[in-house]
């Protein structure tokens, strides 16, 4: 157990890459990368979505503040990671969600997803996704009631369900619609790729505009903020697997095309901003490939055969759980030593 088994300690030989990458700087890049997609989300979903993002960030930051030692607060909070977790959680929530649930979700994300494990860098699961999983398990109906994306004119409209009293149900004003993935799964209708690309579809706040999420992801890749192997492995596996399913079952079957698979639901958001979380993904290059392949495979599997239309959440959480194991088995061998 003791020698070379600690997955956090990775020995590599020279040449070593030198870069000025500190935690706050890395966090700043992620904020910037999320900006366009967030702005688009606000454009489509209006003020209600903004309130959800603010409350989930507030829930996360407040929880971090409460559970951090008084004299360490200044340092611990300065990396803005709690706020980022809150934002990422907010982006995975439906726009009509009551605000108190968003707050609770942010609080659970940090409380159960991070603080309880020992703070930044010690958690096994992605905190934002843990918060989402909690909300999905706790309020399954509220978490799967989707409002349609509105036009610019609806910007100042707030869903009445957003403003539900704490512990009370939201009263949904408009008729709820189905997400592209829900339509695919239950009604066998495909949504045009152009809508998926631009983002005027129903769905979670941040998973609508594929184009802007791609921009953010490419920016992070360019800044070397994220490991490129993970997105590459997810995209390759998910598209190949769904292509195979499509070919096996024939073109007129109800199986989604690879492009639909990639651009619908939370796949892009999850790939670029959650699966690549350095804390909860493997450290070795080979491990990253395995991790990404696992997510790509699981997400298509859950979407096609699971009870839920979207599988990104559980795909990432399951592979998060497998990360220590992957790290252990992909440790590079020391030259000349038999394992």
């Amino acid at each position: 157990m003791m020698n070379n088994k600690d997955p956090k300690l990775l020995l590599q030989s020279a040449p070593l890459l030198r870069q000025e990458l500190t935690t706050p700087a890395a966090m700043k890049d992620v904020w910037i990368a999320l900006l366009p997609a967030t702005a688009a989300a606000l454009w489509f979903f209006g003020l209600g979505a903004l309130l959800i993002l603010i409350t989930s960030i507030a829930g996360a930051v407040l929880t971090e503040w409460v559970f951090t030692d008084k004299d360490k607060r200044r340092f611990a909070m300065s990396d803005t990671s709690a706020g980022l977790t809150g934002l990422l959680l907010g982006l995975t929530l439906p726009p009509g969600l009551p605000l108190w649930m968003a707050f609770l979700g942010g609080s659970v994300s940090i409380g159960l997803g991070k603080v309880i494990w020992g703070g930044l860098g010690s958690n096994l699961f992605n905190p934002a996704l843990l918060g989402r999983a909690f909300l999905l398990g706790t309020f399954p109906i509220a978490m799967t009631t989707w409002g349609a994306a509105g036009g610019p004119g609806d910007f100042f409209q707030i869903h009445s369900s957003n403003l539900a009293w704490p512990f009370m149900q939201g009263q949904y004003d408009a008729l709820s619609t189905a997400t592209p993935l829900g339509l695919m799964k239950f009604e066998h209708e495909t949504t045009a790729l152009s809508s998926l690309f631009l983002g005027n579809t129903a769905g979670s706040i941040g998973e609508t505009s594929s184009l802007l999420l791609l921009f953010g992801g490419v920016f992070l890749l360019f800044r070397r903020g994220i490991e490129w192997r993970i997105p590459a492995a997810i995209f390759l596996t998910a598209s190949l697997f769904s292509l195979a399913m499509l070919l096996i079952n024939g073109a007129d079957s109800n199986y989604p095309s690879p492009l639909f698979t990639l651009f619908s639901g939370g796949l892009l958001l999850g790939t670029f901003f959650m699966a690549t979380d350095p804390v909860t993904s493997p450290l070795t290059p080979k491990g990253c490939w395995i991790f990404g392949i696992g997510i790509g495979f699981l997400v298509v599997l859950i979407r096609l055969y699971g009870g839920l239309p979207e599988g990104m959440l559980y795909a990432i959480l399951l592979m998060n759980a497998a990360t220590p194991l992957i790290d252990r088995y992909t440790q590079p061998k020391i030259f000349g030593r038999k394992s």
Partner: peptide
């Protein structure tokens, strides 16, 4: 459930935390 010993505490509008009555 929003109840205590089967007595409703919060009225019909209460949003129940489904996860709480499940094993998790």
């Amino acid at each position: 459930v929003g109840a205590f010993f089967g007595i409703d505490l919060f009225g019909t509008n209460f949003e129940s935390w489904v996860i709480m009555i499940l094993p998790p």
